[in-house]
Design a binder for these strands. Structure first.
Lengths: 261, 261
DNA sequence: TCTTGCCAAATTGGATCCAATTTGATTACG
DNA sequence: CGTAATCAAATTGGATCCAATTTGGCAAGA
């Protein structure tokens, strides 16, 4: 199975901020299909037709049709020449590509935030994220619960900077990548069997947050951009974890979040 | 009227490479709605409902519904809290934002193309684009027809580099911005009353192409990236042309192309 | 045996019908 | 006179029906 354990926290409360205009029903179809694609229930290259999927999910063809269009926009489905959709093969290379794109986009956000200056509330928010991290890491080790907390303020740290850039196009562009599994900040994986190593890894990531904030807070745009770009590579580890077979080893835990539809 | 003359070449043969899974009918609805939004026939902030639009276009609600979802994904419509969509206001600032995003994305593409090296066919294609331009500009002036040719090879030049990056995520991310009017390389505007000035402007742009190619061809990734980023600013002129009122003056001609749906 | 043509089955897109939810307005009551 | 409640109209999402297009197979002829 591809991306084992990937669907852990997939159908949680869900922020449903920008739901694509459908009731719970259609929303559920969309989420279910995303999940089925991500965990390989629908294998890459597989041809998907409306009727079988509709029957399988117990709904009519209409919501499935809508979902197919959305999934095509998100890049999870590819349209055939004449008829039908096929599941797009998501290779580790593609994930790495998406992470590289995220790097330059978030780098741009960091630079703009530096140049334009961040608002006081945003600044406090960033400092709060950093303090939370400091408290976490000062213990010298990390628990599973800590990972949840880290994941949460990590996401907020990044989102705050993106908002602080005051460039809505960045957010739009990023929302695209976020649909590719493991390409967004909203998913992290860690090895439960090597929590010492993971501590060092995430601590490093956290220190990067510190210097990124420092750069932004001092209006050092180019520095902030370079640092943020480098920081994106922290996620590149996924492409190492997932080998050529794209199998997520059992001793890895994935934290995933549905955000910004 | 907003974006006057914007719809000039909108419904031409159309490449329809990645049509969103609908027949000519539904495709036409989507294109028509894009046009209506772009030229202000549907004013920014206007609430759009399915039934009135469907009647206005002489189709049933189904294709309109599909189109609304697509347009939301493209960022041209915004979904209300509870019900309905509203036309997203596209300000010159937003266009400038999108152009900035395009700059970093194409910059990344140029760097990757430099680092990974470009294929021989791609290289020939770029050289061909440059030669075509040289021939055009060597005359010392530009006709309207020349502008069409320039627009064509300009688009191909950029697309070739994006393909040469061999990073599909860049193309995906860019396809988003391309829907915002004037944010993509597929649209250019020029002032028919000042063809001398426009000659100098586009000649400059063409010379930038030359040095960008030089950087890529010599594997100078950082240089290629910086140059391509700067080059994107050539399009920023639109945000100057369109003042706060977003009115396109009469003496300006717009060349637009439907591509990559 | 290979190719070509035709017909049936499958699939997709559009239209219409129905149900559920929301908006808003009018009326009744405090 | 203001507020709240109820009811009607509007709007949206889902299901089903119908038409158009494509695919695939089978048969007939070269």
């Amino acid at each position: 199975m591809l991306f084992k354990q990937f669907d852990l926290n997939y159908d949680r409360p869900a922020v449903t901020k920008t739901e694509t205009g459908m009731s719970k029903h259609g929303q559920r179809v969309l989420i279910t299909l995303r999940k089925m694609i991500a965990n390989g229930e629908l294998p890459p290259g597989e041809r998907v037709a409306e009727i079988p999927i509709a029957e399988r999910l117990g709904v009519s063809r209409t919501p499935v049709r809508i979902a197919f269009r959305t999934l095509e926009q998100e890049g999870l489905l590819r349209k055939g020449d004449r008829r039908g959709y096929t599941v797009r093969a998501i290779t580790p290379t593609e994930i790495a590509d998406a992470i590289e794109v995220r790097g330059v986009l978030e780098g741009l956000a960091a630079r703009l935030a530096s140049e334009r200056g961040i608002s006081l509330p945003a600044r406090s928010h960033l400092i709060e994220c950093l303090s939370t991290g400091d408290a976490l890491f000062s213990k010298g080790f990390l628990t599973d619960e800590d990972m949840e907390i880290y994941h949460d303020f990590n996401m907020r740290f990044h989102n705050t900077i993106i908002e602080a850039s005051r460039n809505i196009a960045i957010e739009d562009a990023l929302s695209r990548n976020d649909h590719l599994p493991f390409a967004s900040v909203s998913s992290i994986a860690f090895n439960r069997d090597d929590m010492t190593g993971e501590f060092r890894r995430f601590n490093f990531s956290h220190m990067q947050h510190h210097i990124i904030f420092d750069a932004i807070d001092n209006g050092q745009g180019a520095r902030a951009e370079a640092l943020m770009r480098e920081h994106a590579n922290a996620a590149l580890r996924y492409t190492q974890i997932l080998g050529p077979t794209q199998d997520m080893p059992d001793n890895f835990t994935v934290i995933e979040r549905e955000d910004t539809a």
